[in-house]
């Protein structure tokens, strides 16, 4: 079996197997699996409104996935995407409502830039600690996740005079777009998806086309060889982390300027950053792969919301089913080995 075929078959079979096991779970718990999956399907693709909201859900996943994947490709585990995303979220919201009188063509990019810078700064701290003081990036970034959560909460509180959310971003800074809303039956689809797709290209370009990308990958794969070749390992670690933070920060901007139009106090992390780890792994840390991984992840997440209403399946069961499907996709490696064995046996005969 050729590699290409295996590469396409593995995710497909994984999804089918995941759906099967998810179905079994529904049946065992006493629900109609067919009804459940019809509800899931309709929740994702049922009408223009669902499609619009599904795409809206996918958008931040693409960016958090890119953030994790970029770090992985350069030899780092950025588990701090969550915190970087929250920082970007607040920065975008603040610039979005606090700066008045700018035309949209300046204000919107400025708000996006602020989010990117905030995420980058939060990630830079992690990279700096790792490069200069050998603090492991996982520890630093986990701690900074908490810091970001409470810092943004406190900031929102004081910015809004004790309320739980910032003022709504101005018309000149929003990612909302009337036309997109109209064609999707008033869903909350916004322009962010184009930003996300652009970033997919940007990540690919940095890694595959630039001199710096060559260095970043070398440092990621083999620090010793990079040092031997005269690369500055520490500077590249800091840079890799910072670029990863840019993607994460933009993920926050999608929520601030697109979906919610503000930043609000959160009891716990948004989860988008952590889900980014799964998205990156689903996409094999490849920018195009991340796009598809995010699409699967976002679709299931959004579509599943329809299952309690349309099929009467409790949310908890729905969460289990979604988790099972993702688990199967993520453990594609096992399937890959099985397929290769199967392929070899067939060739032998």
């Amino acid at each position: 079996m050729s590699n290409r075929v295996v590469n396409i078959l593995v995710p497909l079979i994984s999804v089918v197997l995941g759906l099967l096991v998810g179905g079994i779970i529904m049946v065992v718990s006493g629900y109609d699996a067919i009804d459940g999956y019809i509800a899931l399907w309709n929740g994702i693709f049922g009408d223009a409104y669902s499609i619009g909201n599904t795409i809206r859900q996918i958008t931040p996943y693409i960016l958090s996935g890119l953030a994790v994947a970029f770090a992985f490709r350069t030899g780092l585990f950025n588990i701090g995407v969550e915190g970087q995303l929250l920082m970007g979220w607040l920065a975008a919201a603040y610039v979005g409502y606090a700066i008045e009188g700018l035309p949209r063509i300046i204000h919107l990019p400025l708000a996006l830039l602020a989010a990117a810078a905030a995420g980058a700064f939060w990630a830079f701290i992690v990279g700096f600690l790792k490069a200069k003081l050998h603090v492991h990036e996982v520890i630093a970034s986990i701690m900074l996740n908490y810091t970001a959560l409470y810092l943004t909460n406190a900031a929102i509180k004081s910015l809004s005079d004790g309320s739980f959310k910032t003022p709504t971003v101005l018309e000149s800074a929003t990612l909302r777009n009337q036309w997109l809303r109209e064609i999707t039956d008033n869903s909350s689809l916004h322009l962010g998806i184009f930003v996300a797709i652009l970033m997919v290209v940007v990540m690919w370009f940095i890694l595959e086309k630039t001199t710096r990308g060559y260095e970043l990958k070398s440092v990621g794969f083999n620090k010793n060889a990079a040092e031997y070749a005269g690369m500055n390992v520490n500077r590249n670690i800091i840079l890799a982390m910072t670029i990863s933070g840019v993607f994460a920060g933009l993920g926050g901007a999608m929520e601030a300027l697109g979906t919610y139009q503000n930043a609000s106090i959160k009891a716990a992390a948004s989860g988008i950053g952590f889900d980014g780890i799964a998205v990156a792994l689903l996409g094999a840390n490849n920018p195009i792969g991340v796009f598809f991984g995010a699409s699967l992840f976002g679709s299931l997440k959004y579509g599943a919301l329809n299952m309690p209403n349309a099929a009467g399946i409790p949310e908890e069961i729905v969460s289990i089913i979604i988790a099972v499907i993702i688990l199967f996709v993520a453990s594609g490696y096992i399937l890959r080995v099985a397929l290769e064995k199967f392929g070899k046996k067939k060739e032998g005969k």
Binding site: Y214, S218, N222, A225, A226, E227, Y228, A229
Partner: peptide, 21 residues
């Protein structure tokens, strides 16, 4: 393996390791 090559790179990219910049 430790210093001479980035094993995950194609051999062509490895040949550029000292002159890539």
């Amino acid at each position: 393996h430790k210093h001479g090559l980035v094993l995950d790179f194609p051999i062509g990219h490895n040949i550029a390791l000292q002159t890539y910049y």
